[in-house]
C-alpha cells in the first residue's frame, strides 16, 4: 500500500539527536547498515520523519531518495507518528467478514482522520492491521495493548471516550 506522509510537525529533542548520531557512528562503515540504522532511528523517534531520514542520508553518504525507498518499502517502517493511543482495527479475513470495514469507517469519521494518520492533538492514531489471531472475538480492535472484541459501530464512541 502507498504510505501516507505525515502532516505533524517534527519535534525531535537534543537527546534523541545525540542517540541517533551515536547509532549512525556505530554502523557507519558496515555494509548494509541502512536497515539497522532505520530500525534504530524508529525506536528513538517512534517513526521516520523527513528530518531524521535527511540526517541519516547525509551522515551515511547515501541519497535521501535511497533512504526513503527503503523506508517506504518495508511495512514495519512508519512515516507517521503513533498517537498516545494507537487504535488498530483488524482487517483480517474473519474480522472483515464480520464487518470490521464499517468499524474502520466509523472510527475514521469519529476521529476525523484516515487509516495511517494521526489526530492533530497527537492523541489518537488509526491503523488497519492484518489478522491479530483473535478471530473468535471478531471484529476486533486494539488500543495500545488493550483488545476490544465483538464490536458494533455504536460501541466505538464509548471506547474512545475512555481515553479522552
Amino acid at each position: 500500500m502507498k504510505k501516507k506522509l505525515t502532516t505533524v510537525a517534527f519535534s525531535g529533542t537534543d537527546e534523541q539527536k545525540k542517540e541517533l548520531d551515536e547509532l549512525i557512528a556505530q554502523h557507519k562503515d558496515e555494509k548494509g547498515a541502512l536497515m539497522p540504522v532505520l530500525q534504530g532511528a524508529q525506536a528513538i523517534y517512534g517513526y521516520l520523519p523527513i528530518e531524521v531520514q535527511k540526517d541519516i542520508a547525509l551522515q551515511m553518504g547515501v541519497s535521501l531518495s535511497e533512504v526513503y525507498g527503503v523506508a517506504s518499502f518495508y511495512s514495519q517502517f512508519i512515516l507517521n507518528p503513533k498517537g498516545d493511543y494507537a487504535v488498530s482495527v483488524c482487517l483480517g479475513t474473519a474480522c472483515y467478514v464480520k464487518g470490521s470495514g464499517q468499524i474502520m469507517e466509523k472510527l475514521e469519521s469519529l476521529l476525523g482522520i484516515k487509516g495511517g494518520e494521526i489526530t492533530k492533538d497527537r492523541k489518537f492514531s488509526l491503523d488497519a492491521t492484518r489478522c491479530i489471531g483473535a478471530c473468535g472475538l471478531a471484529p476486533v480492535l486494539t488500543v495500545n495493548e488493550e483488545v476490544y472484541g465483538r464490536l458494533t459501530p455504536d460501541m466505538l464512541e464509548g471506547i474512545l471516550k475512555k481515553y479522552n
Binding site: 500500500m1 502507498k2 541519497s63 531518495s65 526513503y68 525507498g69 518499502f73
Partner: peptide
C-alpha cells in the same frame, strides 16, 4: 552520483 529519484513504496504501488 546524484540520486534524486528512486523507487518508492512496493508491489503494485
Amino acid at each position: 552520483g546524484i540520486g534524486v529519484i528512486g523507487a518508492n513504496d512496493r508491489g503494485f504501488d
